[in-house]
Amino acid sequence: MGIGAFVALVGFSRSFEHEWLRLYQSSGTDIAVLQSSMFNSSIDESLGAKIKALPEVAAVAPLVFNLIDLTPDVNALVYGWPADSYEMDSLTFTSGRRFRASQPEVVLGDLLAQNLKKKAGDTLTILGETFTITGIFHGGTALETGAVIMPLDQMQNISSREGKVTAFHVRLKPVPAGETYEQYVAKVQKEIEALMPGIRAEAAAARAGNNQIVDMAHSVAWGTSSIALLIGIVGIANTMAMSVFERTREIGVLRALGWKGRHVILLILTEAGVLGLAGGLLGILVGLGALWILSIMPQTASVVSLSVSPGHIVESLLIAIGSGLVAGAYPAWRASRLSPVEALRYE
């Protein structure tokens, strides 16, 4: 179960990070501009024009977003975008059309529309305001496919953030000859940060891994998984201790046949490692199942997808085997210290 928790929780947090990265990549965003942190980021909307005026910048997309309860069962990321945002180009509409600027209109990701049982032409109430659903889109990531997008000013209005945005997404012009992409992005980051004190410009890839929500998801996942793993280790240690206890005479026979203490340790540790591996394989199946459920549940579908890397599976198996070895260490040591005569007399 410890490994199951590890696969599900750490998989969840990594999937979350992965979705952020895909979100930036699919829209062609090179730099994200925020104030101090994602939770309380609030930047004056006028900064957008200054960023746009930089010679390297091709496009700037201001945005406001928040996680909002749409029904008692369903919450979703709600974005405010300008109607002409370049990020709109990454969406593929499966029905209806885009929203118009400054109108009480929204577009829904297809997964969210399915969960809410809504279609183009229906209405949706968000924070007490009623919006017409003008289109259903299919986005490239879970963060979009489970999201609501509305005109920027409408979002500012319902969240009382007039004139303010959460962040700017910046798309750069092609990299000039003689510069690497990283050098180019770093240079523009500095130029943007010089425009206004207290803001931070981050490369999109770094932003995906660094933002506080992702950090917190990682911390919670690792913390919870560690506790579950610790419980798992205690469980295996108990099983191995019982196994050694029940096989005292058997171990005595091996010692009588000349098995050295280290041979007995190797035997018990091998058993503990195999036990850990078996638990790990089972845990991975349970974890993947849990992750799959999370990826389709309305409450979580907007932030997670079932994308677990082979590296995460290998990491889980190694942790499972390692947990088995740690748990088996003490019983193995005790078994190796058994006196052959005492062990053979054991009833």
């Binding site: 026979v253 046949l257 000349g258 053979l344």
Partner: peptide
């Protein structure tokens, strides 16, 4: 002792002690 038991002595017990 382990080397002695493994290479120089063969034990046979009353209770057989097979695994």
């Amino acid at each position: 002792l382990d080397t002695f038991r493994s290479s120089q002595v063969g034990f046979i017990f009353q209770a057989f002690h097979l695994l």
